[in-house]
Design a protein around this nucleic acid. Sequence first.
DNA 1: ATCTTAGCCGAACATTTGTTCGATGTCAAG
DNA 2: CTTGACATCGAACAAATGTTCGGCTAAGAT
Lengths: 234, 234
Amino acid sequence: MKRGHRSRIRRDLRQEILAFIVRWYQQERTYPTVREIQKGLKISSPSVVDYHLRRLEEEGLIVRVGRRSRGIRLRRWPDGLAPEADLIPIPFLGSIAAGEPIPNPGATPLAWIRIPRLWLVDGNGLFALRVQGNSMVDALVGDGDLIIVKPIPQVEEGEMAVVWLADRHETTLKRVYREGDRIRLQPAHPAMTPLYVPAEVVHIQGKVVQVLRNLNGIPLPGGQYSPSTGREDK
Amino acid sequence: MKRGHRSRIRRDLRQEILAFIVRWYQQERTYPTVREIQKGLKISSPSVVDYHLRRLEEEGLIVRVGRRSRGIRLRRWPDGLAPEADLIPIPFLGSIAAGEPIPNPGATPLAWIRIPRLWLVDGNGLFALRVQGNSMVDALVGDGDLIIVKPIPQVEEGEMAVVWLADRHETTLKRVYREGDRIRLQPAHPAMTPLYVPAEVVHIQGKVVQVLRNLNGIPLPGGQYSPSTGREDK
DNA sequence: ATCTTAGCCGAACATTTGTTCGATGTCAAG
DNA sequence: CTTGACATCGAACAAATGTTCGGCTAAGAT
């Protein structure tokens, strides 16, 4: 490029540099160096890139990380492309079906499902369960749905909760109502009757905070590799 | 650490290095240098780190990228933590409600929602819509749900589709049945009657492939920054 | 007791990467 | 026509980063 070319394309080179950084990051999952940008955009000298990076920094579009290698950080990313805080691994503990206990949230998960962080108000301690059965269809939760459960000891009246019944040794998904010293576990299904149990056998394990359904089949949990087993991530 | 310390902790240092790289990447969204690993694990010399990295490479657990800075790549990542191919940006085009057209999928989206790539069989051309109304509750799709739509020109008999009615200038979400030269658009709601329309006014815009519901409120679409508008990512 | 090997270490070197500098050219403003 | 600002450029330098080297120690094998 000719020296000192002053026209509106000068601003385009800065846009090209920003776009290059985004493309590089999407492909390599790391930041480029000044010389990688230079070569990628066919610029003769790294000092040209450095010049424009300093202008971009003055414009508040990037941040430089001292003299560190690959130390260029974008302050703004195009939608859906930012590297930060993207997915939270939630342990998938299995299916919830009447008569079967689910493991404690601290148990070794069967798999992990990765939820975008932006979808979660509070990502701590969540776990995932597959719903078996149709007892909650009137709450728009169906057989095969994946539910994300927030472990809490109590729910609001009428909230949908994962409940452990100590006397029956079973877990169930129901709406919870207190009636005197009994608990009414209410299905959301026209043909099913509620279950009345003494309050002391009811252990709330958590409430449903999210429902995920893939109409083409069961949503794939994340890859199943864990460091202790050494199996490969897919 | 004492020189030549030979015991089972030698293998643990390699595991520590791998774990450090994962932690560093989760936090910084870039790979660490040899000296950053050295300092982070309180090792006296970068050559110790280099020694173990060479062992890890021989074991097939990492790959080195020539003599490049930050050139250590893990071949396996713990579940849910791999940097690659995580989120697909899907354009959020607005709400689907009777009487209101939705924009063409190519239109400028109102926002973007980021879906884990693993959840999508085919990520091409998908778009997201917010459901308004309860006409499809018996298909377990309710008011406020976010649906992911795959643009296709035809659906199977009885599939749930986003349909544009040219004569009424409205979009609707219904199950689609062919009856002679008419189309029956069937709500999934006990109190609603189907709509019969001439086949030629029916334009299938896509079918629902995923339903996402956040019981705490409306799922947040991804950040709203786009390069052309310059607004800040949140 | 001796030898071998793994692991650690500090120092130094090689290469990569970030940055500076002086020179040059172009264009708009005065 | 002159001046100043902007952009480019090659060369060189400074700092960061990857890698090598020789040495030391401890533990296992012989």
